[in-house]
Each structure stands twice: as structure tokens, then as C-alpha cells.
């Protein structure tokens, strides 16, 4: 099939282009072809959504809360610095 229409990306090609697509760094023609593929390819749409979900979960990874002791240490650092200025 891809030999019949070589300018239409395969799914394998789409998954490699997905970051450039999300970053809006695909050249216009490639972007259009990728979107044309997504029109009929549910699986690649699922993949695209999974990458978006991966980004969302990564964004939710958060640090342990910031302890008062740590805060005090840094405030002391600040006062030292201020004192020396």
C-alpha cells in the first residue's frame, strides 16, 4: 500500500513524527499528510492521545512538600547574604 501512495505516511512513520507534530515543528506538507492519516487511522489517534496522556501524567509528578526546616535554612542563607551586602 505505501508503495502505491508513497507520500501518505505509514503508522510507523507517524509515531516517529508525533513529537514534531505536537511541537508544531513539522513542515506544513508533512503535517497535512499526517493529519490526513489520522482521519482514518483510529489506532494512530489512540497513540497520539497516549503521548498526550503521557505528558499529562509527567506533569502531575510532584515533589514532596517543602519542609519548614528547609525553608528556615534558606531564609538563614538569605539573611547571611543580605548582611554581607
Amino acid at each position: 500500500m505505501s508503495e502505491r501512495v508513497p507520500d501518505q505516511p505509514t503508522c510507523r512513520e507517524v509515531v516517529e513524527l508525533i513529537t514534531d507534530y505536537l511541537e508544531a515543528r513539522l513542515p506544513l506538507e508533512a503535517r497535512t499528510r499526517l493529519e490526513q492519516h489520522l482521519v482514518f487511522c483510529d489506532w494512530c489517534r489512540v497513540y497520539l492521545e497516549q503521548i498526550r496522556q503521557t505528558i499529562r501524567v509527567a506533569g502531575a509528578v510532584s515533589e514532596e512538600s517543602f519542609s519548614p526546616e528547609k525553608r528556615e535554612e534558606l531564609v538563614r542563607l538569605f539573611r547571611d547574604w543580605k548582611g554581607k551586602k
Binding site: T10, W43, E49, Q53, R56, A60
Partner: peptide, 18 residues
């Protein structure tokens, strides 16, 4: 025939699981 297309495609993830 469909070289390069998924043969073991991804399955949708439920947002609740995330």
C-alpha cells in the same frame, strides 16, 4: 499489503487510570 501499519495497535487508556 499494509506494510508499516499497526498489527498490534495500542488500546485506549482510560483517563481515570492516569
Amino acid at each position: 499489503r499494509w506494510a508499516g501499519h499497526w498489527c498490534a495497535p495500542p488500546e485506549r487508556w482510560a483517563d481515570e487510570q492516569l
